[in-house]
Design a protein around this nucleic acid. Structure first.
Lengths: 338, 338
DNA sequence: TTTGGCACTCGTGACCTTCGAGTGCCAGGG
DNA sequence: CCCTGGCACTCGAAGGTCACGAGTGCCAAA
């Protein structure tokens, strides 16, 4: 087991390296931190830390930098979550309060998060899977053409065109609308298929085909839209990455454009509590030199989606985690209010 | 006036420079292009072109590179629009045909354009200003709470909550819905305010307040949503920019994140025909080393929105213009069908 | 276990040289 | 009048050398 002081040395190394972006040596360490021991002692500790794999040297005769394992220990044991200052909290509140609709909430959240953390922000739209139906609307646009509009409790709206096998009258359509809503409003999406299963049977022969088609489209929408969407921002912050640019930034930008990759990334995060994935802990190979800090958010107790940031492994973990957590809370509040 | 051959030399310089990304010298030019004259002659021509400001030398004793003015001449006079190959056309068709809704169309278009041009793609959502109303729906969610859903002919859906001053009955609401739709369906957004002006008067005293509120929200939505949205993609292509990375790429990424900037950029493009803005022709200072190729697209004759790409001034103009034009046409078709 | 001392490593930056692509200019020829 | 070959010149890129110094590991003494 590592002694208390050695952990302290690791903490100092991480903090210095995050600040200066340069390998940190024993002398510099003792100067910047009041460790109460000489550089030589620190060197011994560093050698031990290196043996354990927490730090490494880019070259012989250079300072040490933390490894992924070192950051992991730092995040788990050595650092807390730094709460935001109250001006920051107020700024969040003000910034999010002006949002007019769901798109706007998400867009503002992305900007906010990117600005606070100075990193790339990723915000997932509230998922349809876990949300409930607020209303289903059916509009007759042409004799055999119906528009289906689905409204969720998170304010999301999805619409689909339905080409019906036969014309359907306004009365039947109103009837279907009423019955459909009485069954599904307030229910979870996952439960909908079962709830509407026997609906066609209660309609006249003529309309059954159309009713079935409409219901099929509804279910299809549920499935399709379970493929979640997300918004990213703050990519300009990637330019602060390092000096060895193109090689580092390229795969990251590519990964960020692949929504699938990002969704998987967020999906891997724990449902509750904050998840930090460091460097090679990320499965995607374009992201092996980045860390992902993610957390769930939602209008109630339960998370309906996730948000987070992507940044270099060399990031200010306490600060980033604080910002991510705070933003998630406020977004949850905003969603609950609307 | 520049002689025919000098224009030919300029064309060759642009083509070579776009291909190699390196200043092109007189000797290399005569080798790669059958100009029928000696390097010395080309040197004279180059000196003339430089006097006129079409090309420049990065340093003495280096080859020449085109200036913005040179690219301008190239685009206007020396190069046409390169049509896509038929496999490319088929690929576009296939790729866009799978789209399920408007969001999907836009998302696919962005990816497609980014892939075809290997540059950053920008696609504006069909604007509400120029589109027409397909349907307005009113849903009573609570006694004094109405949801307003607005559907456009381009398939876009906007919804707003309306808190009414007084409860309104289902009958009155249905009445309002019917009258509202009979007046505005098929009309342009710009005309709507006038068309609904006197609507509250025809309702009973009790409901007038609510009707006014609903109409106010509708008009507000029209105004608010005239602020257009857009989607961008292919930012990873920025890494192909040049060797002097961070400085070049940073302001571009920042500009791309500012939707306002991009909207203004697209707004400056001509409504019909293709617009190419080269380097310093772009007002925004982050984009002075990029060119923007934009074109309007729409379901009918008239453009309802614009799309385009942002890339280095050193880009393959004919190819890019060809791709942009082709994609715009296909998107127009898709929109017209749905 | 800590500390000061010491020899060693090796990347960084400054400085210099070489190399060659590219230029401008000029005199001669079609 | 325009084109061409020749020629001296420029100057950035690439490579080599060297001194510097931050940082290391190890050891013997406190």
């Amino acid at each position: 087991m590592l002694s208390e002081r050695r952990l302290e040395v690791l903490r100092a190394i991480v903090q210095d390296y995050v600040g200066t972006e340069e390998p940190v040596g024993s002398k510099a360490l003792t100067e910047r931190h009041r460790l109460g021991v000489s550089p030589a002692t620190v060197r011994n500790d560093m050698a031990a830390l290196e043996d354990e794999g927490f730090i490494a040297q880019p070259h012989t005769s250079a300072g040490r930098i933390p490894t992924d394992k070192g950051y992991r220990l730092f995040v788990d044991k050595l650092a807390g979550v730094k709460p935001l200052s109250s001006p920051e909290r107020r700024a969040i509140q003000n910034f999010l309060d002006g949002a007019v609709d769901l798109d706007d909430v998400v867009a503002r959240t992305v900007r906010l998060l990117a600005q606070l953390t100075r990193q790339v922000a990723v915000v997932q739209y509230p998922s349809l899977t876990r949300s409930t139906v607020r209303h289903v609307e059916l509009l007759s646009l042409a004799p055999a053409r119906v528009m289906l509009v689905l409204i969720t409790d998170t304010g999301r709206v999805e619409q689909r065109m339905v080409d019906c096998p036969a014309p359907i009258g306004e009365t039947s359509l109103a009837d279907l609308r009423a019955r459909l809503n009485s069954r599904v409003v307030g229910r979870r999406f996952a439960d909908v298929p079962q709830l509407v299963q026997d609906l066609p049977e209660s309609f006249e022969q003529d309309d059954r085909g159309t009713v079935s088609t409409v219901l099929a489209t509804l279910l299809e929408t549920l499935v399709e839209e379970t493929e979640e969407r997300l918004m990213i921002g703050g990519t300009a912050n990637l330019t602060r990455f390092g000096h060895d640019f193109p090689l580092t930034i390229r795969p990251v930008l590519e990964a960020l454009e692949e929504q699938v990759v990002l969704l998987k990334l967020l999906g891997e995060a724990k449902d509750s509590g904050m998840t930090v994935r460091i460097g090679h802990e990320n499965a995607h190979e374009g992201l092996t030199s980045t860390s992902v800090v993610a957390v769930g958010y939602g209008s109630g107790d339960e998370a309906v989606a996730k948000l987070g940031v992507v940044g270099p492994t060399r990031m200010d973990y306490p600060g980033t985690m604080g910002a991510v957590r705070a933003v998630a809370r406020y977004v949850g509040q905003i969603l609950a209010e609307s």
